[in-house]
């Protein structure tokens, strides 16, 4: 089957498209052909050999649903896509709204619902967690610079200043809060989130939910190396039943449909896990789970095709990923083609 995949921006802030494609290429139950759906002529995935068999530029989410739909229709006319896996947070709302129209074209998806996207929204997560007795850092929403003056009422420094979609800064004093606030305001708009800073170490889980509350697969990972942007550059699968139980609970309470990544902070002080974020799509390290025995992107597609699949029950502990940089060399003509034609 032919699958369109977004997020081929395997840069220093990598999108999950490339590892999703690699996982699908290793699928054993389905035969896959991969199409890259890209936003920029310089997305590294375009230049990797044996990755997508064809790549198409698609319009940015900010340019509107109709543009996106028209473009996908055009691509579909040429490629006959069976499936699309969107991999970026900012495009998910759009795809959720387009789901039925894509289905009418014969393109399947397996996406969270609008309500699920709202729960995991950085502004709503706090309520969700307190409701279900899951530990979560305290946070408040900021919609104007004036609101910042209420910070000392709620927190002691340092605090985390977070954008509604991406990016976070740790601020040790009010001046640093203002700096982070201004950067985020310009880039992602309001609201901006001020969050309690929890000292500890970060743990992540990649998981897949069937939409009925069941966890089809889940692999926890400890980052071994973190870049200055906070991205894991190496990590190892670990064995921690508490993390898995928490994951099952979250999947059950949200009835999550689709892949996700859970980000936890294990507090130095209390040794407990605090849920920092639910990312509503596979993470950029999802190929580690595949290598450890749980091919979650493949399972996602089989779930969408209503195949009966048994949940994964194990994975290889101690599997490591190390991200590296590798320069792809090509001629200007490749770049020219994608820039002027929008497809290659």
């Amino acid at each position: 089957m032919k699958i369109g995949v977004t997020g081929l921006n395997a840069t220093d802030n990598p999108g999950p498209g490339v590892p999703v494609i690699r996982s699908l290429q290793e699928a054993t139950h389905i035969k896959t052909e991969l199409i890259g759906l890209i936003y920029d002529s310089l997305e590294p995935g375009i230049y990797m050999d044996n990755l997508a068999q064809k790549n198409y530029l698609i319009p940015y989410p900010s340019s509107g649903l109709e543009n996106m739909f028209e473009r996908i229709k055009y691509i579909h006319d040429k490629e006959h896509l069976d499936f699309i896996i969107p991999n970026l947070d900012s495009e998910l709302f759009g795809f959720v709204k387009l789901k039925n129209r894509l289905n009418e074209l014969g393109i399947k998806t397996f996406l969270p619902t609008f309500e699920q996207l709202m729960i995991r929204g950085k502004d709503k997560l706090f309520d969700f967690c307190t409701q279900h007795d899951i530990k979560v850092p305290k946070n408040i929403l900021i919609t104007s610079q004036n609101d910042l003056y209420s910070i000392p009422k709620h927190f002691t420094y340092p605090v985390v200043v977070k954008g509604i979609f991406y990016e976070a800064y740790i601020a040790n004093n009010f001046e640093e809060v203002i700096t982070g606030f201004n950067k985020l305001r310009v880039k992602w708009g309001f609201p901006i989130i001020i969050q309690e800073y929890i000292a500890g170490s970060e743990y992540n889980v990649v998981a897949l939910g069937d939409g009925k509350g069941n966890t089809i697969g889940a692999v926890p990972m400890k980052k071994l190396y973190i870049t200055d942007k906070g991205k894991g550059w190496a990590g190892v699968t670990i064995n921690d039943s508490t993390l898995l139980e928490l994951t099952h609970k979250i999947m059950q309470k949200t009835e999550w449909q689709s892949g996700l990544e859970l980000e936890f902070m294990k507090s130095n002080e209390t040794n407990e896990y605090y849920l920092l974020e639910i990312n509503p799509r596979f993470p950029a390290w999802v190929h580690l789970a595949t290598a450890a025995g749980q091919n979650l992107p493949e399972a996602l597609i089989r779930l969408a095709l209503s195949e009966n699949i048994d949940p994964f029950t194990s994975y290889k502990i101690g599997t490591i990923f190390i991200r590296g940089s590798w320069d792809f060399i090509t001629d200007m003509s490749v770049f020219e083609k994608i820039t002027t034609m929008g497809e290659i």
Partner: peptide
Amino acid sequence: ISDSGFLFFARTGETFT
């Protein structure tokens, strides 16, 4: 400049459409 209207300025490395 290519037929597709893609312009590569080799002195600066800049490209234009």
